[in-house]
């Protein structure tokens, strides 16, 4: 589904990704872990086409298409969803209006008719239950005045609404208490299907108790330096990252 080869990327001239390769198949859950500053969030930004980052080398294909050539909105419509580490507040734009515009743009891309208002509201109601989201939130402006937990739940709600093929969860666990974490993880698990995949970016092992990965990768200094099964996450939790740094830097 996703094939990343030798990806190099920088922000303001500073190289962050230094030859990253990764492949993700349908039905898989990949966890990406690593110390601060390793380039975890850069990876999610580059995959979704954040204009602040420049790709200097490498290829990314998504279901056979050259992802790097697509505009951010087209990557979204192709089925890539990013749950932002810091969801953006957009004052004055109501959640309903925002979501309906997004859903209908996705439908237009697939040559479908726009959704009727009543169908849209029904779908919204269903998906909201998935993350136990308060009705009131839907009437507010996008993320404005949401608590940290509400913002993250709102991300998963949007994920449910847009039904992506590949979802990237960027530090979705940060700033969540244990109840919110469970709700968010449940939402993600319910959305899991054999034909979609997820990349879970996290600093801690905690989230992986809830969202069980098939593969765990360690990102350090802009590259994936170690891969393994879910037991690797436990090992990292226990031993920290220093031993990996030493292994890599020692080489």
């Amino acid at each position: 589904m996703l094939e990343i080869k030798n990806l190099h990327a920088n922000i303001n001239g500073k190289e962050i990704l230094k030859g990253l390769s990764l492949s993700v198949n349908a039905g898989e859950v990949h966890a990406i872990m690593g110390p601060n500053g390793a380039g975890k969030s850069t990876l999610s930004s580059v995959l979704t086409g954040n204009p602040a980052f420049t790709v200097t080398e490498g290829d990314v294909t998504f279901n056979g298409k050259n992802l790097l050539e697509l505009a951010p909105e087209d990557r979204s419509r192709e089925g890539i969803f990013l749950s932002f580490q810091y969801p953006v507040e957009i004052p004055g734009v109501s959640m309903v209006n925002f979501m309906r515009t997004a859903v209908n743009e996705h439908r237009k891309y697939k040559n479908l008719e726009p959704m009727s208002a009543s169908d849209f509201l029904r779908m919204q109601r269903e998906k909201k239950e998935l993350v136990e989201m308060d009705n009131k939130l839907a009437n507010r402006s996008v993320n404005e005045g949401f608590s940290g937990g509400e913002k993250k739940r709102n991300e998963i709600f949007q994920m449910a609404m847009l039904d992506p093929k590949l979802s990237i969860l960027d530090e979705t666990d940060s700033g969540l208490d244990i109840d919110a974490l469970r709700i968010v993880a449940n939402g993600v698990n319910k959305l899991k299907r054999p034909d979609n995949a997820s990349i879970v970016i996290t600093h801690y092992q905690r989230l992986l108790d809830y969202i069980v990965p098939d593969f765990v990768h360690v990102l350090y200094d802009g590259r994936i330096v170690k891969s393994g099964g879910k037991e690797l996450a436990l090992e990292l939790e226990e031993r920290g990252y220093d031993w990996i740094k030493q292994e890599v830097d020692g080489k």
Partner: peptide
């Protein structure tokens, strides 16, 4: 950042 957020959700620039 708001523009990018919206584009990530599939809304055109």
């Amino acid at each position: 950042t708001a523009l990018f957020y919206m584009r990530q959700r599939g809304i055109s620039a």
